[in-house]
Structures are given as structure tokens and as C-alpha cells.
Nucleic acid binder design. Structure first.
Lengths: 184, 184
DNA sequence: GTCTATACCCGGATAGAC
DNA sequence: GTCTATCCGGGTATAGAC
């Protein structure tokens, strides 16, 4: 069982790294097995199919993201909370760029086997932003759209930074994002 | 030649529609041929490969997007220009949701045959936003990051609207996006 | 310029030994 | 629980008739 868990871990890590650059459909089970250092048979011992492997991967990754956002909000309210969430999300993206890339490319796909799962996870993460925005005076019953906007701004700026301008430092990027948003 | 052009058009339209939901890798040439109403051989007569077909598709789509943004900016400067660009981009997304989905999923891929092409197009589109931001007093040498943020906010809010909350009306969505941004 | 038919390979999944 | 070997469907691309 401990053995199984470390194998599972290796498989999930390999799958994430490959999918971040090649996409999920573009990643083959052979490649995952090779990078994980296990035989292909072991993939299918630990996961029932390729779809189920990537569903587990997204569940773990996006679930952890939502949890971290919730803890970042803590007792903060309104724009203060949005400010803290933006910064936390940027740090999460920086610490897990492969997951961020994968989210960016999967978030609007509606044909996947794991669609329901991803939709729920996406909702959990955005709900934290929406909740904070609802505590401001700008929400006006459209905090869902606004939450997506803030999330999208951070995601795209964060990946722009990591992929195309990695020489910049984190504080500068955080400040740039906050400068475009009506925070405070 | 006129014949070839209409065939090309049908192929490109079919390819875009399919790729918007299934992704490029997940779209097969057989499916494109069937939806376009032509035989598979005609695909390869008009485009040398699947990669080249999708490169042409992105070139056409993102190129037109950049042109439209530039014309929306016109003589406007600073926050007024950002405001106009946000609204125009939202309209472009609404009018061409499949392209918007495709962009969202392809923009951070770095392993594609058409990587160079897409990078240049992406730069053209973002440059219009960056230029407007540079005309404000908030740029501080980081207009590239800020432009990505604004673009990401509009793209994600726009797709949130079209994919998950289509009952809202366009003006409401535009207002919600602008309300999250420090415009004016 | 468009079609049908086919070559060829690669990817997901399974069987069964160890 | 992990391996190797293999099956089989489906995918890109090409050949050649019309």
C-alpha cells in the first residue's frame, strides 16, 4: 500500500508535467509510464483508464487550490480579501505552473469524461472570490462574472510572467496585477 | 480557384467548430472532412498537413482579432482606450466563441509546430492593450504583465458568460468587467 | 479539384507471468 | 504489485481513379 502510494504519486507527477506542455490528449500513457519510471501495466493497475487518471489529477490539484484560497481569505472581507486572494493565487500559480497551464487549457472544455468533476472544482475555487466580491459595494448581483474576471487576470498575468517574462520578481508582478484591478 | 476558396472556407469553419469543443489534438481529420462536407483527400489537397491547417486557422482568427482591436483603439488614449478595447474584445469573443475557446486552450502551449506564429499573433493583440496602458500613469514599465491581466480578465469573464451564464446580457457583462478594473 | 481506397503506425487497454 | 508482450481500433497521410 505504501508502495502503491509512491507509485501513484510518481504517475500523477509525471502525468502533470507532460500534460502541462503537451496537453492531456497529446500525452500518451507510454510517455507517462516512461517518465514515472514504471511499466505501462502499473498505470492501469493504479488507475482504471487514462480519463480516470487525469480526473484524479485535476481533483487533487484544483481541490488543493480551492482549499488554499479559502484559508487565504480567512477572516478578511471585501476588497482586503480580494487583495489577499489575488496574491495567494499568484503564489499558487508560481509554485505549480504545470497545474496552472493545465487549468487554463481545460477550464472551458465541455466534452470531457470528467466534466462534472472539474465544473464543481472550478465552482469551489471561484466561489471564494465571488464571496469576497459580494462583500464589496461593486457586486450588484454579478459577482460570478467578476470573480471569473479577477481569476482570469491573475491566471493570465501569472502565466505571462512564468512563461514569457520569468526574469521579473514576484512582488512586481503582484503589484502590476493589483494596479489593473479596482482593489481598495 | 473560386472552388478551392469555398472548400478551404468550409474546411476552416468545420475545423474551428470541432476544435473549440474537442481541442485540436482531439479533433480528427475524418471529423473535419465530414462536417465540412468534403472528402478527406480534399483536406490534404488544400492543406499540407493537420498542423498546417490549424496554423492557418489560428493565423486568420487571431490576426483578425488584433486588427479589430487596433481599429477599436483608434485615436483613443490611456484609460479611455482600455475601456474601448475591453468592450471590443468582449464583442469579438461573443461573436466568435469557438475562436476564444481555442485561444484560451492554446495560448500557453509551447510544444506546437506553429508556436512561433501563435506567439507573434499573441504579441500583436496584447501590444494594443499594452500601448493603451503605457499611456496611463499606472504602467511603470510593466505594461506587458498588465495587458495580459486585462486580456485574461475579459477572456475568462467572456467565456464564463457564454459557456456558463448565457442568459445575461452583453451590457451587464461589460459593466461587470469594467467594474473590476481600474478604468478611469 | 475532389473522390475512394488503403498503407502504415501509434495509442489505449488487457493478459498473464513473476 | 509490477512487469512484458500483445491485441485492436482509430488516426494521419498517400495513391491513383475520375
Amino acid at each position: 500500500m505504501a508502495r502503491a502510494n509512491t507509485t501513484k504519486r510518481a504517475i500523477l507527477d509525471a502525468a502533470l508535467e507532460l500534460a502541462a506542455t503537451k496537453g492531456i490528449t497529446g500525452t500518451t500513457m507510454d510517455e507517462v509510464a516512461e517518465l514515472a519510471g514504471v511499466a505501462k501495466g502499473s498505470l492501469y493497475y493504479n488507475f482504471s483508464s487514462k480519463d480516470q487518471l487525469f480526473e484524479a489529477l485535476l481533483q487533487e490539484g484544483v481541490g488543493a487550490l480551492a482549499d488554499s484560497l479559502r484559508s487565504a481569505k480567512g477572516e478578511l472581507r471585501g476588497w482586503d480579501a480580494v487583495d489577499a486572494l489575488v496574491t495567494r493565487l499568484l503564489d499558487l500559480i508560481a509554485a505549480n505552473a504545470p497545474l496552472a497551464k493545465l487549468m487554463a487549457s481545460e477550464i472551458f472544455r465541455t466534452d470531457r469524461a470528467w466534466q462534472e468533476t472539474l465544473f464543481a472544482l472550478r465552482h469551489d475555487a471561484l466561489a471564494v472570490f465571488a464571496e469576497a466580491i459580494d462583500e464589496t459595494d461593486a457586486a450588484a448581483g454579478r459577482s460570478g462574472i467578476m470573480a471569473s474576471g479577477v481569476f482570469g487576470a491573475v491566471l493570465m498575468s501569472g502565466l505571462e510572467w512564468l512563461v514569457f517574462e520569468p526574469e521579473r520578481d514576484r512582488d512586481e508582478v503582484a503589484a502590476a496585477i493589483l494596479a489593473t484591478l479596482r482593489v481598495r
